[in-house]
């Protein structure tokens, strides 16, 4: 490494150092451009069907939606008219869930909005249908939570309340703001 190349190198570093902010500035506009992209879906699918399996290869839930938009950077997927089947226990038919719109987050939480209907396909199931305008389902531990008015139709009863939470495995449920439950043929 002759003295000449050393001094050239030094000179080059010097220039670089003094212009450091120049190099920095040019970075700025680029970031704004990138933020706009974030709002564009990474990919979009129409009439798509996704089946998701757990480690043992057991089907845990499947989604059919008119439109699906995945937003990688924002970490969620939007569904239009999602039809969701959640398989809770092997010996039990799945729960069918439909709504106007659904948002699936990376931590396996799905929020469903507008005309949400959850149907249990087993006749003697504890709840036949659940209707509400918003619900969040944690697909990992199969729990549901809503803070909106809800109507739960069971075998021979109807429950109305504001907000509820339920565990699809243990079938425990709770209404903190219960309005009324009707037993008998009125439901």
């Amino acid at each position: 490494m002759s003295r000449l190349t050393l001094s050239i190198l030094l000179l080059f570093l010097l220039i670089l150092a003094t212009n450091y902010n120049w190099w920095q500035d040019s970075e700025q506009p680029q970031v704004n451009k990138q933020r706009e992209d974030v709002w564009q879906p990474n990919y979009q699918a129409r009439n798509m069907q996704t089946n998701l399996f757990n480690e043992e290869g057991v089907l845990t839930h499947s989604i059919h939606a008119a439109v699906m938009e995945h937003y990688e950077a924002l970490g969620f997927t939007l569904f239009q008219q999602p039809q969701y089947s959640v398989f809770v226990q092997a010996d039990e038919p799945p729960w069918e869930i439909t709504a106007q719109e659904g948002t699936l987050y990376e931590d396996n939480r799905i929020q469903l909005e507008t005309n949400v209907e959850i149907r249990s396909l087993s006749e003697d199931g504890v709840w036949q249908t659940i209707n509400t305008s918003f619900i969040e389902i944690d697909l990992n531990n199969k729990t549901m939570h809503s803070d909106q008015p809800v109507t739960i139709l069971g075998v021979n009863y109807t429950i109305r309340g504001n907000g509820f939470s339920a565990d699809m495995n243990s079938k425990q449920f709770e209404l903190l703001d219960h309005v009324e439950t009707i037993y008998g043929k009125d439901n």
């Binding site: 199931g125 504890v126 709840w127 429950i159 309340g161 243990s170 079938k171 425990q172 449920f173 709770e174 209404l175 903190l176 703001d177 219960h178 309005v179 009324e180 439950t181 009707i182 037993y183 008998g184 043929k185 009125d186 439901n187």
Partner: peptide, 23 residues
């Protein structure tokens, strides 16, 4: 012959043994 209505502030239930508690 009428339906039975239960009103209460709080309700919890256990779907497996089909018991509900109203408080």
């Amino acid at each position: 012959n009428e339906p039975i209505r239960v009103a209460s502030k709080f309700q919890s239930g256990d779907g497996i043994n089909k018991v509900s508690i109203f408080r």
